[in-house]
Simulated assay, not measured.
Amino acid sequence: MSTPTSDVDEVRPRGGRLPRRERRAQLLESALGVFVRQGYHAAAMDDIAEKAGVSKPVLYQHFPGKLDLYLALLDTSCDAIIDNCRQALLSTHDNKQRVGAAIAAFYDYVGSETGAFRLVFESDLTNEPAVR
């Protein structure tokens, strides 16, 4: 699976310590780019660590393994589309506008440059019960 090269594909320079929450967000963002571009099976923790600008031990401090990292991303991606659709449905009492808003929220999600929708709708890990 190949996607165009963008700023998201750039490797981060190795930097100083970040607070745990910020480091986790950085790792998830980097992993998203790698998983979207390469798929689960072809993605390597080395690639993710390099893209994030951290050592592999730092990556493993936050995520015990590749599947744990992938599942965290999958949860985040599913939560995003669900939350966006809920907000769209709650935005008005007019059913026609609610449907339009929900459809717009869905297409905004699928059209996002991050490609997060691929984790939800095009996973190459469908044999894994936790992913299903």
Rank of each mutant, 00 (worst) to 15 (best):
G65W: 07
L90M: 10
L67C: 11
L32F: 12
A104V: 05
S30Y: 01
E113R: 13
F63Y: 08
D83I: 10
S123T: 11
D94I: 11
E10A: 10
T92Q: 03
D68M: 11
A102K: 00
K56M: 13
K96Q: 11
F121N: 13
S112Q: 08
D83K: 14
A44S: 11
A130N: 11
R86N: 12
V54T: 14
Y60S: 13
R86M: 12
P4D: 06
Y109T: 12
R37F: 08
A130I: 03
I82M: 15
R132N: 14
Y70P: 12
T92G: 07
R132Q: 11
A105H: 10
V34H: 05
C85M: 05
P57C: 02
R118P: 02
K56L: 08
S91I: 01
F106K: 03
P13E: 13
D46W: 06
A72N: 01
Q87G: 05
N95I: 07
L18N: 09
P19A: 10
I81Y: 14
A116Y: 10
L89K: 04
E29I: 05
N95S: 04
R23Q: 14
L27H: 02
V54G: 09
E10V: 04
A52L: 05
P64C: 03
L67A: 13
L27F: 07
D79H: 12
A130S: 14
A80R: 15
S55R: 15
Q26R: 14
D124A: 00
V36Q: 06
P13N: 08
G111V: 08
Q87L: 11
A105Y: 05
H93G: 14
D7Q: 13
G39W: 00
P4W: 06
S123P: 04
V110T: 15
K66F: 02
Y109S: 07
T114H: 04
D124T: 00
G115L: 02
Q26H: 10
G16W: 12
S6L: 03
D108W: 06
A31G: 08
D47N: 06
S112Y: 09
S91F: 06
V11A: 02
N127T: 15
N84S: 14
N95M: 06
S30R: 07
R17F: 06
Y40A: 00
R24Q: 13
V8M: 11
T114K: 07
Q38T: 06
R118S: 05
L67T: 14
V120N: 00
T114Q: 01
L18C: 02
A44Q: 09
A104E: 07
Q97S: 15
G15K: 09
A52R: 11
L73I: 10
R118A: 05
D9I: 04
G15E: 02
L125A: 09
C85F: 11
V8S: 13
A80Q: 13
N84V: 07
D94A: 13
R132M: 12
F106H: 00
I81T: 12
A44W: 02
R17G: 04
S77W: 07
A31I: 00
R98M: 12
M1W: 01
L69W: 14
V120H: 00
P64M: 03
E122C: 10
S6G: 11
E50V: 09
L27C: 09
N95C: 04
F106M: 04
Q26L: 08
L90E: 13
D68L: 09
L73W: 03
I82E: 15
A80M: 12
S30L: 07
R98H: 08
L18D: 03
S91H: 02
A101E: 01
T76Y: 13
G33K: 01
A42R: 14
A104S: 04
